[in-house]
Amino acid sequence: MPDTQAPPPVTVTLKAGPTGPGSIDDFELFYARRALDRFRTLLGRQGLLDLLATDIEEGNAFLRESARTSEGVFKSGTTVLATKGLTSGAFLAWMDEAFAGDESALLAAHPEHYAMGTDSIGARVVENIGPHVCSFYMGGWGTDALSWAADVDELLPESEFPRKMSSNLFLADGTVVGRALIQFGDTPDGFTANLTVYFPVTCPDEVLDHHLRHYAVEFRNWIVAAAAAHT
């Protein structure tokens, strides 16, 4: 019988050369971020939006159709992050400042952030939802949970997670295509973040799972940026 066992994976280990710390993966991430920042800067906000116009149209059509076929029913997933060395209050204060006008800090948190800011409709976000580039708005965002969030299963005790923020996610034509509920609770050495997203129930599961990964990347990087600003 022929041997059908797959060969072992090829591995490459850095033995010598660079004087600074880090792995090859760390080096690649640094250069990828630097290249991305260069293209964002050269294109500018409107240049990026113009470049992605067709992708956004297709992505929003996907969300609109998902909302139509789901008839107001959503499914959810939650990413949980544990932070040490920073309080939730310090982090949220930094976030408030960033959302008030520091778009570059918001965009830097994820490679698939393309625009974040406020226009005539409200707080606009252009980013990937799964494989789709979408442009949507966050509405009703605030410290008081919206009516839909008052009795959801994901709502955590006020005593442990006193800082709560919720929002509908909607397209420019008003179609609600998702929801977000984020909750923060301090711990003896930092805080815990529970980050819940809701998508129309007919969305593929991989769209939901990818957004849970998206949450992990963007909030980790925002927390690290807040900590750097806090010191």
Rank of each mutant, 00 (worst) to 15 (best):
E127N: 11
V125Y: 09
C134E: 02
F39G: 03
D189V: 04
L181T: 03
A82S: 14
M95A: 09
M1H: 12
G22W: 04
I56C: 00
W141P: 06
E28K: 10
F27N: 07
V73H: 12
I182H: 13
A109I: 11
T19K: 04
D119W: 02
P157E: 00
K164F: 07
A105F: 06
F30C: 08
P188H: 10
A82I: 07
D37Q: 14
T202H: 08
L195Q: 02
S23Q: 01
F219I: 09
Y215A: 13
E127R: 09
G178C: 10
E218C: 04
A149M: 12
R220S: 15
T54S: 13
L156T: 00
I121K: 14
H211P: 01
E28A: 15
L81M: 02
P162A: 00
A193S: 15
L212R: 11
D173K: 11
A180K: 11
D119Y: 07
T231W: 07
D209Y: 07
Q46N: 07
H211N: 14
V197R: 12
P200F: 02
E103C: 08
W148Y: 00
P200V: 01
A32W: 01
R64V: 03
M95H: 11
R179H: 04
L146S: 09
D96S: 13
F191Y: 00
H132A: 14
D173T: 10
E28N: 14
G59S: 00
A93S: 12
V10W: 08
S76M: 08
T202W: 03
W222H: 02
I129P: 03
A172L: 04
K75F: 01
I223L: 05
L63F: 10
N194D: 10
S147Q: 15
T13Y: 09
A227P: 03
R179T: 01
R45A: 09
M116Y: 13
V126S: 05
D119G: 00
A150H: 13
H210A: 14
D55K: 11
A227T: 06
D3I: 00
P18I: 05
H230C: 06
Y114M: 09
T79R: 15
E57V: 03
H230M: 05
V177M: 11
D102H: 15
G47R: 07
L81Q: 03
F184H: 14
A180D: 06
T87Q: 06
V201Y: 08
C203Y: 09
P18L: 11
E154K: 12
W141K: 06
A105K: 15
R64N: 02
V133T: 05
L156P: 02
P9I: 05
P111A: 11
S88F: 01
H214K: 03
K164S: 09
A115K: 09
S166M: 11
T19C: 05
F74N: 02
T78I: 03
T175D: 08
R34Y: 09
D186G: 01
L49P: 00
Y31P: 06
F191R: 00
L155K: 12
R220M: 02
I182Y: 04
T4P: 01
A180N: 13
A109T: 14
A35C: 05
A35H: 13
S135N: 04
A53T: 10
Q5G: 09
G101P: 03
N194T: 06
E158W: 02
W94D: 07
Q183H: 08
A100R: 12
S167L: 08
A82G: 02
M165L: 13
S23H: 03
F161T: 01
V207C: 07
